[in-house]
Design a protein around this nucleic acid. Structure first.
Lengths: 266, 266
DNA sequence: GAGTGGTCTAGACCACTGC
DNA sequence: CAGTGGTCTAGACCACTCG
């Protein structure tokens, strides 16, 4: 599909043909990027465009090498980086696949909550409300929208082993998620990000979280079955899609009586 | 230094000499590891043994390749992984260096606190107390010691822009840090991990943190200048040295009125 | 200019998957 | 068995640093 013209990129030809321009002498190259990064960009474009969808296999390394007119090692290095960023998933003998939130491994990458004692528990997401609104200044800033742009807001409760642990309020750009309803959310089996991926074609790739300790407000306290004013962990998150576009902002209140937020520092 | 016998490792010789044994047929190889990982292990040993110290350059790739009797590409892949784990630092044109906490970049890798508003601030560590004790059951478990083993405990206050933000209580194995004193801590310029590295030859490589929201006890509330019982972020951390040996356990209480804990999810 | 890491290629063989 | 990713090599040239 989509046959490429020979040499889709401009290699700086270290001994091959098509040396095609580079900072060969004198001129500095301020925007220089190595061949494998150009390949990586091309692959990223395919992901953004939805040509290769989550869960699907991308073409083999040797085929990509032929298509882009570079060596397999160069394609390999591009894919290596993307695999390290959890954008792609390599499986020896089978192929390279677009990472998906349907994969249960992805779940704990974005919800770093572990029980204080005991093994793994079953998580259950309970959508409570879902309504449309207009972006206020804070949401607009976080999602790079204009004030007044349509947004969707979802409230939901997360339970572990049947006990309420997290209340989330989730803000989504109406331009993308305009048609979400409480019904759709309740019907769906699987994580919220899996839902976004399969129902709206949006894959969350990266997120930033800001954590604080705050006193429980009355409503949250009731839902989480803790005393009003008792300490909760506030987790604000902005999630980004492929092109580093913010597509979700959420604030979660975590009850840390039986669970804690686990983080690994490298 | 330390000349190696030719072929310090057992390559599975893809077309070179010294094919020296591998799972050539029939027998599965349960403990198989590729050549570059064997090289990585050898490099790790050098780091653990202190042969190459933090901040110093290690031998060049080509020299290591000669020494280990493998190709430069194989050494490169070993170093690539270690650089990705922040154990080594590559600098083009200069060499490859052992990562050090003296590098200011390392600072924010282990203290993920950012101001809610405003730019970067000057951090100041104020050691409050330092005493010897015997490991209780919790500390013993975290540091893999026996109950009753000697430990050192340090209490200190962290200020940002002159305001108190974190109170830490730090537990250290006496076998390693037995000679710490409040004097030494107060004299030292630089981060605590920089101190451990330069005064005790221990480099923290990795850490696990567990976060919860807790009410402020009286002592911490006074130090942090917040109301008793107000929500604080509790951060418990176990830090590991090269061989994944736990060498520090600490509990910090963070005031999140003007700062928050920042985390990036990949 | 010499030495270092960084990129790129070409080709070989190994390990795993599935038909 | 063919096809995929994974490892290893050898050699070339580029980009950067420093004396």
């Amino acid at each position: 599909m989509l046959p490429m013209p020979p040499s889709a990129v401009s290699p700086k030809g270290p001994s091959s043909d098509t040396p095609s321009a580079s900072a060969s002498s004198g001129a500095a190259s301020p925007t220089f990027s190595p061949l494998y990064r150009q390949i990586k960009s091309l692959l990223l474009q395919r992901l953004e465009s939805g040509e290769w969808r989550p869960g699907e296999a991308i073409p083999s390394e040797s085929e990509l090498a032929t298509r882009f007119n570079v060596s397999q090692g160069t394609v390999r290095k591009a894919i290596d980086e993307m695999a390290a960023e959890n954008l792609l998933l390599r499986r020896q003998g089978k192929g390279t696949f677009v990472a998906s939130h349907d994969d249960p491994r992805a779940f704990f990458r974005f919800l770093r909550l572990v029980p204080l004692a005991g093994g793994i528990e079953q998580a259950q997401s309970i959508p409570l409300e879902c309504w449309r609104a207009k972006a206020g200044p804070e949401v607009a800033r976080m999602l790079e929208l204009n004030i007044g742009d349509p947004i969707n807001i979802v409230r939901r409760l997360l339970q572990f082993a049947g006990k309420p642990v997290v209340v989330d309020e989730i803000y989504l750009p109406g331009s993308i998620f305009g048609t979400v309803t409480l019904e759709m959310l309740r019907e769906y089996e699987g994580s919220l990000y899996s839902f976004f991926e399969n129902r709206f074609g949006i894959r969350m790739v990266r997120a930033e979280e800001r954590l604080r300790a705050v006193p429980a407000d009355r409503a949250s306290a009731e839902l989480l079955k803790v005393a009003e004013g008792s300490p909760l962990l506030s987790v604000e998150r902005v999630s980004f899609s492929y092109a580093d576009k913010p597509v979700e902002w959420r604030r979660g209140l975590y009850s840390t009586n039986d669970h804690c937020y686990f983080n690994e520092l490298g």
